[in-house]
Amino acid sequence: MHAKTTFVRDLTPGQKADAVFLLAEARQGQAKNGPFWALTLADRSGEVPAKIFSPQAQAHQDLAAGRFVHVRGLVGTYRDQAQVVVDELAVLDPDAEAALTLADFVRASERAPEDMLADIEALCREHLHHKPLRTLCRTVLTDPGVKARIMAAPGAVSIHHAYAGGLLEHTLAVCRACMTFCDLYPDLDRQVLLAAAVFHDLGKAWEYAPGPVREHSDEGRLLGHIFIGMQVLEPFLRKAKDLEPEIATHLRHVILAHHGELEWGSPKRPKTREAFALHFADNLDAKLKTVAEAVDEALPDGETGWSPFVRPLSRFVYRPARTPDPSQDRKDNPKAQQCSLLSKE
């Protein structure tokens, strides 16, 4: 396999680009001086827009997202963002694609999907004491067709957790948040809330098309992940003969209402405490991840400052200075921890 040495994050205005990228988007347009291509080049470090102007654009008739391309050109700026003006572009043949390391081109969760799924299953074993609910969760999560889909699925196309494994990462975070809510509010039905958290975004494994490019499937565009998720879950619910109908109905409601408002794509608005809890846990994780990704992409580690405008949040976001925490410093520094212990003797 061929190792990739130049990534999107390395491209700076004035630099020449000469590297292989994944073609995330390809759209043909027409300008006064002839046709052009508007492209999005991608790898694991991010995405960058690119343009092929005439006459070079006329040499390419069938560029399509999902292909790997070797690009040569100059990095410039457009609307204060880097943009590659392409001089030469070659679509790789299947043999050249096979020699690439896919992990160089597809962003992925920092944790292995197997580990995150194991953590979700452990939460189910710890908190689901009602056998029908515990069996339902185990049956769905171990189903070969479901498991194959959820292991690499992203959590979104472009906003939060938009990378391979993002769905499991988001699901695990929402499950943990819901269990914390139950510690704070003991009257919540911990078991139905956890089961709903496990399945709330199940449909995203079908909403997005498989493959290296993050895009909606036809089914995803037409139906959306909430409907698809319930469609996937219903056969398992029908087979769960011991699960009380009223609990099954409540579980369905909590999942269906997790977007909170009709205008946000929720078929129903929350009408139980558990439905509100899942909605806020889901929204909290999505928002915090969106903020973190915006500032992490814009700023070096440890630096304070503002992000560019974040369209999903309709605002700029800020990374403030962190409050010093000596106790945390000792945890991170074994020598400091040892000195602290000696001072107590």
Rank of each mutant, 00 (worst) to 15 (best):
D62N: 10
L341E: 05
H259M: 15
A177V: 14
K131S: 03
L102D: 06
I52T: 06
A298N: 09
H160L: 01
L299G: 07
M179G: 01
F309M: 06
D325H: 00
R190Q: 14
S109T: 15
C339A: 03
L233N: 06
G265H: 10
F181A: 09
D325C: 03
L184W: 09
V8L: 02
A281S: 06
E88T: 08
A173L: 15
L141M: 15
D119E: 14
T272M: 14
L288Y: 09
P94E: 09
A173N: 10
Q338Y: 07
A321D: 10
D325T: 02
A248G: 11
I247A: 08
N333G: 08
R107N: 05
D325K: 01
K268G: 00
D62F: 03
A248W: 01
E110L: 10
L341W: 03
V254K: 03
L11A: 00
T180Y: 02
A257E: 13
G46T: 12
K147V: 12
A162W: 07
L74P: 08
Q61F: 02
R44P: 04
G305H: 03
D282R: 03
D332C: 03
V157F: 00
F280E: 06
P270I: 15
V91Q: 06
P144W: 06
G224I: 13
L102I: 15
L184H: 11
H253D: 14
A336I: 10
G302L: 02
A82L: 00
Y163I: 12
I52N: 00
L251F: 05
H170A: 13
E207T: 10
A17G: 03
P154W: 12
H129W: 04
F276W: 15
L117Q: 03
V84K: 01
Y78S: 02
L100I: 13
E207P: 09
A298E: 10
M116V: 15
A90Y: 04
A98T: 15
P55Q: 09
H253Q: 12
H258G: 09
Q328T: 09
L141C: 11
E47G: 00
M230P: 02
L233D: 07
V20I: 15
P186G: 01
F68I: 11
D325E: 05
L284N: 07
Q191W: 12
A173Q: 13
E293I: 06
P235M: 04
R9N: 08
D93S: 11
P186D: 02
A196N: 03
S340F: 07
R44L: 09
F7C: 02
R214S: 10
A195I: 00
L194A: 00
L194R: 05
G46M: 09
G14D: 13
K331F: 13
H170F: 14
G260D: 15
T101Y: 00
A298V: 14
D218C: 00
H161N: 13
G220S: 02
L237V: 04
